[in-house]
Design a protein around this nucleic acid. Structure first.
Lengths: 197, 197
DNA sequence: CCCAAAAATTAACAATGGTTAATTAACGCT
DNA sequence: AGCGTTAATTAACCATTGTTAATTTTTGGG
């Protein structure tokens, strides 16, 4: 069940946890490998998976009526990923979660883990902190849409996550920024020209 | 300190609370009246006020370098309002919170209320639920920016909060939607024309 | 009730983004 | 390495928005 590498992993990520709680959690957790391009969560899914990304990158996207894909979120190594609709709102997921790279997840069922989380002060605090982080990220991104132009949003994104350009196709980045893929090309070109002077 | 109306109010809003917890909270709480136009929270403020809006409407806005005001958030009666930066991130507020109407708040200092919240399972759960709601709102609004056009965002806003048009000046609504005030006028006109046919 | 100030509308123009289609470049698979 | 597929770029054109300034409307105070 647990090999030495796994134990090391749990000890490092949850070192602030009571040992018993950690073992209880570890019993519920398992590792999942996704190939590049593989779908992690299908729309309509209600499973309350909560996953820590050990390595790789997950894209959350939506399908519009006309068939267009719109990227809503990107999550990568050392972040958590969960179906927002299923875990937070307890509804079927409207979105698709796809691994863009070979991805390693450590997954627990939130529904099963909940009673462990609830009885551990540290885990409760951690889940609170997790929510705060999610909220902080969301607010920050909202500010970007209200305060910044598409060009500025793009610059902010590459500043915060420089390797994103090499890991995520432009067409996905574009819709994440709220613009069309062609526009991202133009913005890139505009920036390059300004830089040359 | 507490009059009959106040007691009624606390009993109705926090009826699911342990009586002792409720009394402890009520001791920390006080009512605050704001006139239309009055500033509630100044930028730079670090006070961790957490307020329930009994009546009225609060606008959160930011000042850009060029002096332009950009509205980030609107909160109204029966919602909570708090300085996101101060309470969630424990930083000085970057934003200005202003009452757009005569507004009645019931206010507690989150810093002082925290130990009451922490020792009450009901209050802890409520604060968790509160965060989930904030997160849900933020995600929903993010979806709007990624999936919808400005016109569709405007229609969504008036659909969700029909009286917003009569309570908030257009110039504030415009920046909330991520567009310029002039554009909102045009969008309004376009919609009216389409409707006439 | 009137007047001054603020807000909303409108128009003209510039800048930007959306859309489509064609071309080029990059990628991935065998 | 080569080939077919997918992604990215580019261009042309259209639609929409941003910007500014002038005009009209609305609002609120005296």
């Amino acid at each position: 069940m647990l090999n030495a590498a796994d134990i090391n992993f749990y000890l490092s990520v949850f070192r602030w946890l009571d040992l018993k709680d950690m073992m209880d959690l570890a019993r519920l957790a398992h590792t999942k490998e996704l190939k590049a391009g593989e779908i992690y969560i299908q729309p309509g899914s209600t499973s309350q998976k909560l996953a820590y990304i050990k390595a790789g990158l997950i894209r959350t996207y939506s399908l519009k009526e006309n068939g267009d894909e719109v990227t809503l979120m990107l999550r990568w190594e050392n972040q958590f990923v969960a179906s927002f609709d299923s875990v937070i709102l307890a509804k079927p997921s409207r979105f698709i979660y796809q691994a863009l790279e070979a991805t390693t997840l450590v997954e627990v069922d939130y529904h099963k883990a909940k009673h462990i989380i609830d009885r551990s002060p540290e885990l409760s605090a951690a889940s609170h902190t997790f929510l705060l982080h999610m909220l902080g990220d969301a607010m920050d991104r909202l500010e970007g849409f209200v305060l910044l132009s598409p060009e500025e949003r793009y610059l902010k994104l590459v500043h915060e996550k420089p390797d994103i350009n090499n890991r995520v196709p432009d067409k996905y980045l574009a819709t994440l920024l709220g613009i069309a893929p062609g526009s991202l090309s133009r913005i890139r070109k505009r920036i390059a020209l300004q830089h040359k002077r």
